[in-house]
């Protein structure tokens, strides 16, 4: 499991990162008109950073050293 303290701490860091990504004030930066490769910036930011976060989490827990 998430036996190693280091893994737990890396995940906790991702938690804090996520809290920052998914909340005010960062959201207000993307909350505007215009488009980003045909997508609204807020939608693109949220879906993109969400997927990146999930990828990071996968990388942290599935690393060989675990």
């Amino acid at each position: 499991m998430i036996r190693s303290r280091l893994t737990a701490q890396r995940l906790a860091f991702l938690f804090l990162l996520g809290c920052f990504f998914f909340n005010y004030p960062l959201l207000s930066v993307f909350n505007r008109g215009g488009d980003f490769f045909g997508l609204p910036p807020l939608y693109a930011w949220l879906m993109g950073s969400w997927l990146a976060l999930i990828a990071q989490m996968a990388w942290v827990v599935e690393r060989k050293e675990n």
């Binding site: 701490q9 906790a12 938690f15 996520g18 998914f22 939608y43």
Partner: peptide, 23 residues
């Protein structure tokens, strides 16, 4: 609009804390 999304971001964050809470 995008307001449906936080309901799914929350669980994502919780699972980032799995090592501390869920485990």
């Amino acid at each position: 609009g995008i307001g449906f999304l936080p309901i799914y971001l929350g669980p994502t964050l919780l699972f980032a804390l799995a090592g501390f809470i869920l485990h």
